[in-house]
């Protein structure tokens, strides 16, 4: 922050504010704590596996970056040869996007029904939806798997995404947001001849832009990082997502093979990038969505 009230020509005796120094020290230590593992990953991707095994993490930057990248992206690790980095990246992308968009669409529509229509037991229905927060996937994984299997959704994108997208969180956030939209807006729209669908699409969705962006970030990252469900539902290597594919690689490290440190770390690096990109891209929207209401 710049202090504009200060005369630039005056040279006041600058006192060191120890409180501020301490603040920064804490921040610096915190960011190092977060960054160092990442730097180790980055370093490992530049050296050969043998070097990594011999020397462990070093300060040296090697020359194998390209090589490791090619291996990670295009070499298959399984038997079928279908789970290359590229195919896993695509699968993860589909999962992340489908998961986020599905949750947003379902959550918005559920919230719309709860807030704007005089349903019987609307509040009860809302709390019923809300209590599903207490029943995450891990609790209901066996019945969920059974249903997916009976509907022959195993090893399909539908099976990967649909069982996950019912969302109490998104419904809750959109409900709270819709309730803050002034009622006169609905009434003005009614007089202007906008029916329920038009009001939703023409007015409510554009008004919720920032909220949608905020939800998208949270849900995309959440979907991208899904591990348990994809592990259960996908058995064909062509359907593997990055997060579970990396696990597959570390399994290869066991036994007598030369551990592929470079390749595994490269994949980890690649797996980090899309969520980071999404957060950076939507960041300002995210803050807006959670703090201010543009009404």
């Amino acid at each position: 922050m710049t202090d504009i009230s200060q005369d630039p020509h005056a040279t006041p005796a600058r006192r060191i504010k120890w409180g501020r120094v301490l603040d920064h020290a804490i921040l610096i230590v915190g960011s190092l704590f977060m960054l160092i593992p990442l730097l180790v990953v980055l370093q490992t991707t530049t050296t050969t596996d043998i070097e990594t095994i011999k020397n462990g993490p070093e300060l040296l930057i090697g020359t194998q970056f390209d090589d490791n990248f090619m291996k990670a992206m295009f070499k298959a690790s399984g038997f079928s040869g279908e789970n290359t980095g590229t195919s896993m990246l695509i699968n993860s992308m589909i999962l992340g996007l489908g998961f986020a968009l599905g949750k947003i669409v379902i959550g918005m529509m559920a919230a719309y029904a709860l807030v704007y229509f005089r349903l019987r037991f609307a509040t009860f229905a809302f709390w019923l939806i809300f209590t599903t927060l207490l029943l995450p996937l891990e609790v209901r994984i066996l019945p969920s798997y059974e249903i997916a299997q009976k509907l022959s959704l195993l090893n399909t994108y539908t099976g990967l995404i649909v069982p996950l997208i019912a969302s109490a969180t998104a419904t809750f956030f959109f409900r709270q947001y819709f309730r803050s939209v002034p009622e006169e807006l609905v009434e003005a729209a009614r007089i202007d001849g906008a029916g329920p669908v038009k009001f939703f699409i023409d007015i409510l969705v554009p008004l919720s832009q920032t909220m949608i962006a905020a939800m998208f970030i949270i849900m995309f990252v959440f979907g991208w990082n899904q591990y348990l469900w994809p592990t259960m539902v996908t058995t064909e290597e062509g359907m593997y997502t990055l997060v579970r594919g990396i696990k597959q690689l570390t399994q290869d490290l066991e036994g007598t093979n030369i551990p592929e440190y470079g390749r595994a770390n490269m994949l980890a690096l690649i797996a980090i990038l899309p969520p980071v990109a999404v957060v950076i891209f939507f960041q300002s929207w995210f803050v807006k969505g959670l703090t201010e209401s543009d009404k």
Binding site: P182, E184, A188, I191, I203, L207, Q209, D294
Partner: peptide, 13 residues
């Protein structure tokens, strides 16, 4: 009919 509201109820976007 047409109606004018107290808080105008303009569509903000």
């Amino acid at each position: 009919i047409a109606m004018v509201f107290q808080n105008y109820a303009l569509y903000p976007h």
